[in-house]
Each structure stands twice: as C-alpha cells, then as structure tokens.
Amino acid sequence: MGHLELHNLQVQFGGLRAVDGLNLSLEQGELRCLLGPNGAGKSTTLDLICGKTAASGGSVIFGGIDVTHMAEYQRARHGIGRKFQVPSVFKDLSVIENLEVARSQHPGVLASLRVFRSRLSGRMDEVLTIVGLHDHLHVKAGNLSHGQTQWLEIAMLLMQDCKLILMDEPTAGMTVQETLKTADIFNSLRGSHTMLVVEHDMSFVRVIAEQVTVMDQGKLLAQGTVAEIERDPKVRQAYLGDEETADAAS
C-alpha cells in the first residue's frame, strides 16, 4: 500500500471533467513529477489532495487514512503540505513571522496563546541555513526579491515538516542557479518526505525525478522514468499534437 493513493478520483466544474477517474500511488519517500499539457488537470489534482477543491467522486487515501472528506486544516494536520503556484508568503509579516506561522506542529488556539517568542534554535536554525535567509529575519516578506520569496516558501514547507509535500511549479521564475539549489534541496528531502511536484522545466525534472506521471485531459496518460516518458509516442502526441511536429522537435 502506497503512502498516498488516489482511487478513481474525479471532479467536475460545470460540464468539464477536470480530473476524470485518476488512479495514482506514491511510495513513502518517493519524489514524483506530474507532467502534462496545459489544462491536463495537474494543479486540480493537487487541489483535490490538499482539500482546496472537494472531489465529486473517488477517494484520497493518505497514510492509510481516507482524507477525501476532511477540511483543509485537518488534512494539513495529517501531514499534507502544499506550495502554490503563485508565491503565497504573508507579505505583511517578517521572514521569521512567516516561519513561525509555518511551525504548525501545535496548531490549537490554546497552544498558540502560550507562545510568545520564536525559538531560533533547532529546526528553525537548520531551515534558515538551508535556504540562506539568516540575514533577513526581520525583513517584511513583501520586500524580498522574487527568488528570496520562493526560498521563503520552501523554508516554510520545511518548517511545517509535512510528510507529503505538494508543489506546483516550484522553480517558476527562478534563475538557473536558484533552480539547481532547489534541486539539491529536493534531493535531500527524498526518502524522508513524499513529494509530488508539478513542473514544466524538463531539465529540472531530469535532475530530480525517478518516476514521472503524465496526465492529459484529466486522465493518467503514461507513467515511468524520464527516458521512457520521453520516448512514449502517446506523450508526444498529447504535447505536440502530431507525430511530424514531434519528430521535428526532437
């Protein structure tokens, strides 16, 4: 039994089946990349897993527990974390305050009433070292550069320390150098965290992914290693329309 399992997952928006009978299984500690053309339902799949969107059919099993009908915050407490496509740090809060919000191992109101200062030692220190934001603790997140904002978001995910990390285009807008550093971080998380990453940048996917899942029109199209996927004629068809252009592109 996988760490995360999707069984016949479905969702409809009006008449559109954004995700249509998707089955997927992730092992504990696996890093899976989710590919597919625009509108294939990748982001929606992440929404369904983290609870942002309610499924109209099927089920999401995480760690052996059926979370299909849980509220977002309950799923988060079970260890499902989500990084969004648009950097969504809290712009009015400082870096350290953002990280303190992310330190959500005790999310209850009463527990929060007893916390008055942010401990900088331990996990916080490790995370700050990984992402290199030590010098910017009291900078408002709104004043960070684009790259730093991305780092802060990843730092928040690390702080939250969720068992399953869902990421939507984590390297969008990053420089090559930043992308490489992100790949390093992902590789170091492999094994301890299960990750599902939606990504378009194939060079990045080659560096991080063992297994790749390709979706098209809400359905699972192909699954395998990067090399297998790149050879798969169905995938080429979905991405590029027809065989000729696929040949021309390769």
């Binding site: 983290c50 942002k52 509220a71 977002e72 915050y73 309950q74 988060a76 407490r77 974390g81 989500r82 969004f84 969504s88 809290f90 712009k91 009015d92 809060l93 305050e97 303190e100 919000v101 992310a102 959500s104 999310p107 929060s112 939250q160």
Partner: peptide
Amino acid sequence: LILRAIREDANRVRFFGY
C-alpha cells in the same frame, strides 16, 4: 501572529493546519 496571517490570506493559514 496567526490572526494577522489570517487577515492577509486565510486559505494559506488553513493549509498549515490551523
């Protein structure tokens, strides 16, 4: 702190488990 975070983006706060 959590209240200020909620004022800014309540959904994001939910995804942290609050």
